[in-house]
């Protein structure tokens, strides 16, 4: 078995003294793990940092084997964001989100979205808005997508500003009526089918993360018995200036 693909590094784990287990999100082979000989060494460690784009060649005798990767760095962007907290937390959180996807299941559109995300990390708010949309996409890929195309009550496609926490469907301002306090705010940039053209404000970005966080927690993480990734809270703190992350024993 042998294939070559382009991937984005999600993480590595040391394997023995010199080797590493590499986890990448590839275009055609999805989230895929493999062993990298010498991956623990100084030559390859800079290449195997999360967020880097690499070309991987995977070889194994049988398909179900872990296999071995040969890795070549294409875009070693990780070194450029080590001094930016929002980027580090964001990439760590994105990797945790990708880990929710089943192994070896291709998600080419998630790869494209992830590549666009890690390619444009400079502006914290801009990056955060795209990350909120990425969370929405992950929910959809996992089969828990929200229906934000029309109002659940009236069918209108205009003035959709709420989401029902029960059904995950959009609700218009007019239909919300007395239930508005029980609905989740829906920022306009979350309903755009194309990429965002104008950077939303911090309040909208916060509302978007509250929305995706609610559904990620209830529909994906809670049934699996997983907590919300720590990096998400740290990311929001660095971008929105919210409370610093909790220190468990403090």
């Amino acid at each position: 078995m042998e294939w070559t693909d382009t991937g984005i590094v999600l993480g590595t784990r040391r394997h023995g003294e010199a080797n590493a287990i590499l986890e990448v999100l590839t275009i055609s082979h999805g989230r895929h793990l493999g062993m990298v000989r010498g991956g623990g060494g100084t030559r390859l460690r800079p290449v195997l940092q999360p967020g880097n784009t690499v070309t991987v060649t995977w070889r194994a005798r049988l398909d179900e084997h872990l296999g071995q990767y040969t890795v070549e760095g294409i875009d070693l962007r990780a070194a450029t964001f080590l001094d930016r907290a929002h980027a580090l937390y964001g990439v760590t959180h994105v990797a945790a989100l990708c880990r929710l996807l089943p192994e070896r299941d291709p998600h080419a559109n998630v790869f494209d979205a992830l590549l666009a995300l890690v390619d444009d990390l400079d502006d914290p708010l801009w990056f955060a808005a795209r990350l909120a949309r990425f969370e929405l996409q992950i929910l959809s890929e996992l089969g828990f997508g929200l229906d934000l195309s029309e109002c659940a009550a009236t069918g209108t496609t205009e003035d959709l500003i709420y989401v029902s926490p029960r059904s995950g469907r959009a609700v218009s301002r007019a239909a919300a009526g007395p239930w508005r306090d029980k609905l989740l705010p829906l920022p306009a940039f979350m309903t755009m089918s194309d990429d965002i053209e104008e950077c939303p404000d911090a309040a909208d970005v916060g509302a978007a993360f509250a929305l995706t966080g609610y559904f990620l927690d209830r529909r994906v993480l809670e049934p699996r018995g997983c907590p919300m990734p720590d990096a998400r809270q740290s990311f929001l703190a660095s971008v929105l200036g919210r409370d610093p992350p909790p220190c468990v024993h403090r």
Binding site: L82, A85, L88, T92, S238, P245, R250
Partner: peptide
Amino acid sequence: NATVDGQTTAHYITDLLN
């Protein structure tokens, strides 16, 4: 370490020492 894990830890500690 100048790795994503190392620097994430550094930023986390920086936040706590604010």
